[in-house]
Amino acid sequence: MNSVQKNDLRLLVFGVVLFAVIGGAMEGGFIGSFWKLNIILIGINVILSASLNLINGYTGQFSLGHAGFMAVGAYVGVILTTNFHLPLIAGMVGGGLAAAVLGFLIGLPTLRLNGDYLAIATLGLGEIIRIVIMNIQYVGGAAGFSGIPHLTTFPWVFATMLLTLFAIKNFVNSSHGRACIAIRENEIAAAAMGINTTKYKVLAFTIGAAFAGVAGALFAHCFYIISPGSFTFMQSFNYLIMVVLGGLGSLTGSIAGAFVVTALSAALADWPEFRMIIYALALILLMFYRPQGLFGYVELTKLAPFSRLRGLKGGREE
């Protein structure tokens, strides 16, 4: 086994231990139902922020339509489980595929745009998705889709989250991921190095949309009813904040961002009037003192203490 695989194994073991600790605490009754739901939401939000980070942070394409892809995944997922009585996994796969197809179709024309223009185009498309859903009576229109079986459990969310993080981590650490990062750094130079920039922008967008769809399916099965109101552009902003707060181009950052934002808004749930103020202040302070986010372009596993530890271990083994 080489050092890369060893590192993967270490991360996996860490994930399983974390799962056992949190899962045990939930089963053992140490955590109330309010926080149980929020822990599940943190997991789902990690999937969403990590997948948005692939688009915004790694490939440098400013997308604001993530809630739209999440909505597609959610609705396709609940149709499959509620109307067709399929298991949750079918809903997740179906939701993810539907979102991926839509991401591909939307990405192909819009990714010709740059910066602000792309942001506005994706913002608009996210809203179009929501309004189209609102006008489909089959899924309940504006009133929402009700009677959803409560299928989302902590193990499902945690396993999907781990899978997502590993998939994105492996992608960005490959030649294909390097192509995406090259586009972010300098699109002209990337093309001059033989990278098909359109292909990789659309690919990152499609993969990001697919995971947003999967997360949407998980999200929908936490509740009895979902409505288009759950997927407004404010929701897209929320994921963007998680990505920026955690750090663009850092998966550790996406985890931290999803955790901080979700936990903070849950903790402040009893003081809704202060919530937005504290939220906004936290962001302003962060932008002043750490504009690159908590982990800008850096992974926790690559920081000095960790690599030193690794080096030490490698030395002993040899």
Partner: peptide
């Protein structure tokens, strides 16, 4: 100069091997 300025020197070169790498996504 149009380097990938925020990336490591090694990654700058690795990126340019892109079209010769054969493994799939």
């Amino acid at each position: 100069i149009r380097l990938f300025s925020e990336l490591s020197v090694l990654d700058n070169v690795k990126i340019a091997f892109h079209s010769h790498v054969k493994y799939s996504v």
